[in-house]
Design a protein around this nucleic acid. Structure first.
Lengths: 160, 160
DNA sequence: CTCCGAATTGTTATAATGTAACGCTTGATA
DNA sequence: TATCAAGCGTTACATTATAACAATTCGGAG
């Protein structure tokens, strides 16, 4: 289980690496990473934060890539279905996937102070929730796990 | 860890029991369970399903208890803060708490076919997510755990 | 190469969800 | 009874999301 997001890291490499992986993934799955879709993924990758659909749309509009809501929603839906991005339900927002290529069930750690989001791995059917589901005869298909709180950096700042 | 929601049960008793507990809880906490708030809780309890704010508002309007969105949202916010109801982020909807009186972190099993919702208990800081959070130095304040899939009844029906 | 069909994009309009703000009412209490 | 905080009614608006259809583009079949 690895957590990505709060450590300092080579962000430029992190962005270009992930874009490269996304290219490969889409090619392999015969999905078309069109200019709008590619740009939306870049925008998401540029931050380790969740962005709302209308934030994205603002960037796209500024760059002449689309002005109406469906443009942003379509690109985001594509990226989510392709596994290149995740939707954060608690924020009505989207974030680039930090575990591209691995089949995984994401769990998020969302900082309420700086809005950064870390992506951690979980497994669907193991652990407590899986146990409870089996006991109830419930068949899990998709899980939303989103923890909100304070990231390490913001804990320190609060203490000051 | 107990799961409530998919078993057949004495629903009338389940509703009146929970209303009684809610009365006590609000009295104990010096919170006012006003007519609108009480009615909203009853509406939520009447179903083991999540209801949207505008579903609730529809009922309230039909009963002359309020016609504008803030009426429903205020009552729902009150119930959530009072611990008598939970918000289901993945559905933008609300459900009555099934573990009233126990301090708990709810986890939900949401049937995509019949929309029924079961509430299960989890603990915040134990388990995999807690482990990952501690490893990352993240301090969890609130967790959203929502699994979507098929409840036992709907699994059988699908098989037919 | 050209045409076809499917996928994608452009656009309009609107639906669904959620909140800010302000004034009135009510109920507890000093 | 005067006062004040909490709750409620209402208007108006903000934010998030989608339906529907026309126009365009792309890749492959012929």
């Amino acid at each position: 289980m690895t957590t990505i997001g709060f450590e300092t890291h080579d962000h430029h490499a992190c962005v270009s690496d992930t874009m490269a992986k996304a290219e490969l993934r889409c090619a392999a799955l015969d999905l078309r990473l069109t200019p709008v879709r590619r740009r939306v993924l870049e925008l998401l990758l540029a931050e380790h934060r969740a962005l709302g659909a209308y934030d994205i749309l603002g960037h796209l509009a500024a760059e002449g890539l689309g002005t109406q809501p469906p443009v942003a929603y379509r690109a985001l839906d594509f990226l989510v279905k392709a596994g290149c991005a995740h939707r954060i339900e608690a924020l009505n927002a989207y974030i680039a996937c930090a575990h591209l290529g691995q089949d995984h069930t994401p769990a998020f750690l969302i900082c309420r102070s700086c809005q950064s989001v870390a992506e951690s791995d979980t497994t669907l059917t193991q652990g407590r929730l899986g146990k409870a589901a089996r006991a109830a005869g419930f068949q899990i298909e998709h899980a939303v796990v989103e923890a909100q709180g304070l990231c390490p950096a913001c804990q320190s700042q609060d203490a000051v």
